[in-house]
């Protein structure tokens, strides 16, 4: 799975702050065979569990939960 990472470096009062945009923060899946590697993957027992974890991750990571197929969701920072 390919993802795009954009780094914006802003200098504010001598301190560099880095904003990460358009990056997949986590993947949720009910089908372990389709889970990608190299990224945080949450294996879920059911779709309901996927939604529940997705809602929590959305709030924690400040990213949006997108559904790609019935079995895979991604949390993306926009």
């Amino acid at each position: 799975m390919r993802y795009v990472c954009q780094l914006n470096v802003k200098r504010m009062r001598g301190v560099a702050t880095i904003n990460i945009e358009k990056v997949i923060l986590a993947v949720l899946t009910t089908n372990p065979n389709k889970a990608p590697s190299g990224i945080a993957v949450f294996h879920c027992e059911s779709t309901e569990e996927m939604y529940k974890i997705g809602a929590n991750l959305e709030a924690i990571l400040d990213g949006i939960a997108h559904k790609l197929t019935d079995e895979i969701m991604i949390i993306v920072k926009h």
Binding site: Y51, G54, A55, E58, I64, A65, H66, K67, I74
Partner: peptide
């Protein structure tokens, strides 16, 4: 417009 994955949202 956009993809919103969670039914609650």
């Amino acid at each position: 417009i956009m993809n919103i994955g969670l039914p609650a949202r």
